[in-house]
Design a protein around this nucleic acid. Sequence first.
DNA 1: TTCTGATTCAAACGTACATTTCAAACACCT
DNA 2: AGGTGTTTGAAATGTACGTTTGAATCAGAA
Lengths: 228, 228
Amino acid sequence: MTSKLSTQHKILDAAQSLFAETGFNDTSLRQITSLAEVNLASVNYHFGSKKELIQAVLQRYLVVLMPRLDQEFTRLLASQQANNLSQVLSVFVKPLLELNKVHQNGTRIFLQLLGRGYTDVQGHLRWFFNHNYGRVLDKLVLLVQQACPDLPPGELFWRLHFSLGTVVFTMASNEALAEIAEADFNEKVDIEGVILRLLPYLSAAIAAPVSTVTPISHTAPLLAGEGR
Amino acid sequence: MTSKLSTQHKILDAAQSLFAETGFNDTSLRQITSLAEVNLASVNYHFGSKKELIQAVLQRYLVVLMPRLDQEFTRLLASQQANNLSQVLSVFVKPLLELNKVHQNGTRIFLQLLGRGYTDVQGHLRWFFNHNYGRVLDKLVLLVQQACPDLPPGELFWRLHFSLGTVVFTMASNEALAEIAEADFNEKVDIEGVILRLLPYLSAAIAAPVSTVTPISHTAPLLAGEGR
DNA sequence: TTCTGATTCAAACGTACATTTCAAACACCT
DNA sequence: AGGTGTTTGAAATGTACGTTTGAATCAGAA
């Protein structure tokens, strides 16, 4: 079963686990190479630097996930009928779960890494992500906008980021939560279970009625475009 | 105006800003003491260690917030009529905003710190938090349970943690989000604005109908257990 | 085999970190 | 003023980090 893996592969496998568990900055190359059973210098030999290793770890999943999401988004945009929010969010499920083909527990690991990327590093990974895949997410914004025509663009912006936070934080602390859930409620919940629990939560949240109690002067937003 | 501050106070003020901005592990005592314009050794003299400094920074807010929340929860629990979810969540607003009395931008800083505490450190801060203030949060769980009697306890557990993720992640990246929001939508949003936007989002999310959808993965084989 | 480029290895480099040390400076008492 | 306990200061300690180095080892072609 355990075929002979290249050094690069062993590094990536060890790195993703440690990165997901401990975060990027709090995982040392020595931990990684020790777990991977390779020489310390091989990381810099094969990847150049720790920063590039982090990107390589993420890219392994992103190059699979993002084209897949793009394809789903494009399909939904092409269908003339308006899609409801639940349908839009549901298209995430299959592409995300297919990351388990990239690596065992790939879905969980990727989402944890995504969470780490948003909270650990200062801007750098956020830029990398938006720069490479921003156009795909623009389609998602468009779809949600169509599904929730009554939602002002500014409100939608915030709610999408709220939702990103929900997902990312949940995955970052997924292990601890799953443990508690099993201990307290006798419910064994895997990553698919969490995703399926997230869907109705996020659907209801994003489509929630807009609050009427606003202490701030309510100026009509003119500019659209999620750019940046 | 700028009265003479004690060394301890200067350290706490510098530390909370840097911790909120960069995270606990990625902020060095040298940065803190440099910003506070005190000697490096004074941190260990006054607080013992970096870990204890982190706790002291958090405690300054927790000792104000948690009794305040406890009081609100108790009040709501005492009222015989059942409270709806929106009412329950609303009790967070005032206690949170009163943290601005503890320090300028105290609400934002505290929530950012809370986010850092949940994602940065390994369990340690989570334990500290649950150990000291777990009983207060139990009352919140009870209130939400009363407001959403149809929600199974297991589902409620997950949704409360989803909500924690929403808040915590939003605050961790609050500065970046607020900047984008202002640039793209011409909306100046302060911490109060974010909190008020969160309320309807979270109310709808927690009270969302429970999904009837079952996992698409085949139920027969349990290969690739997600545990560990 | 011998040559050659790619990979691995042990060791070291320079930097930054939290923490400790101990003498100097300070504040507050009588 | 002198004495005492508290606080600050500059410097050093030991550890860990990412990265670099140069020799040893390997794989494949001639």
